[in-house]
């Protein structure tokens, strides 16, 4: 579960990137975080993951406050950043193993998890090469593997599907579903509204740092008394802001 209460963040003391945000993502849900470019999605995700500090408000991950007990809170989630161009000098396997070390994954489970993940994402032949030699999609896959190897309770994924081939994209979506169905949390941002519509139990639409809507897709249709697609509703909603 992720809870945000009255979270705000401004840059240079002027521009409010996130404005008094309240959001609760319960267990057992895939939660989609939608919004136009520069709406405050990545800023929110960075605050949840402890990368930047909110100016005001409280963030709790499975009940642990990230500000007061950051280490415990950070152990609860796995985070896929929006750019996978990281740790390029490491070999794929070194990177995944490094992530396993950081989260204290035991030797016996780590080997089998790495093998399973590599198989599911079709990365067995690439693990021995440096990440620098990977394509964009392969880099995305290795970063996702680095998160999944430690079996976090809460998944926080910033644009996780960008660059993935159809098979890997399908696999990841399948895994997100399995994870939520096992009673845990998946929080992800995306621009692909069809995916959000099909995959998410609930969505929030953010623009200019404020939540415009939060709920299920049928609730949204009901709210706007319309049978339009999520895409049309999204465009309608963010147009006047």
């Amino acid at each position: 579960m992720i809870e945000l209460n009255g979270v705000s963040k401004s840059y240079n003391g002027i521009r409010r990137a996130v404005d008094n945000l309240d959001l609760t993502i319960p267990d057992g849900e895939i939660f989609g975080f939608l919004g136009p470019n520069g709406a405050g999605k990545t800023t929110t995700i960075k605050m949840i993951t402890g990368i930047i500090k909110p100016d005001a408000g409280q963030i709790r991950i499975n009940g642990t406050d990230i500000a007061t007990d950051p280490i415990k809170a950070k152990q609860r989630f796995g985070y896929v950043p929006d750019s996978p161009d990281l740790f390029l000098r490491l070999k794929g396997l070194e990177y995944v193993s490094f992530m396993a070390d950081i989260y204290g994954v035991e030797q016996d489970v780590r080997n089998s998890r790495i093998e399973t993940l590599a198989k599911r994402f079709d990365m067995q032949d690439a693990l021995g090469d440096t990440i620098q030699s990977y394509s964009h999609g392969m880099r995305q896959k290795i970063v996702i593997m680095g998160v999944l190897v430690h079996h976090p309770e809460v998944w926080i994924l910033d644009e996780p599907l960008t660059g993935l081939d159809p098979k890997s994209s399908f696999t990841l979506k399948e895994m997100m579903r399995e994870h939520a169905d096992s009673g845990r949390t998946v929080f992800f941002s995306t621009h692909v509204l069809e995916v959000a519509e099909k995959l998410c139990d609930r969505v929030a639409i953010i623009n200019k740092g404020k939540i415009l809507f939060c709920g299920t897709f049928p609730q949204m249709q009901e709210h706007f008394q319309s049978h339009q697609s999520l895409e049309s509703l999204f465009l309608e909603l963010t147009k006047h802001e």
């Binding site: 740790f87 490491l90 070999k91 396997l93 070194e94 995944v96 193993s97 490094f98 396993a100 070390d101 950081i102 989260y103 204290g104 994954v105 035991e106 030797q107 780590r110 080997n111 790495i114 067995q124 032949d125 690439a126 693990l127 021995g128 090469d129 440096t130 030699s133 990977y134």
Partner: peptide, 28 residues
């Protein structure tokens, strides 16, 4: 370009060996 060869056996065990968090970070 990488070699795209599968890592198996001892080579896999060596690269995936468990270390403490700080030591793994230092090695990185």
């Amino acid at each position: 370009a990488g070699t795209r060869k599968k890592v198996e056996g001892d080579a896999f065990a060596k690269l995936a060996q468990k270390r403490s968090a700080w030591w793994s970070f230092a090695i990185k």
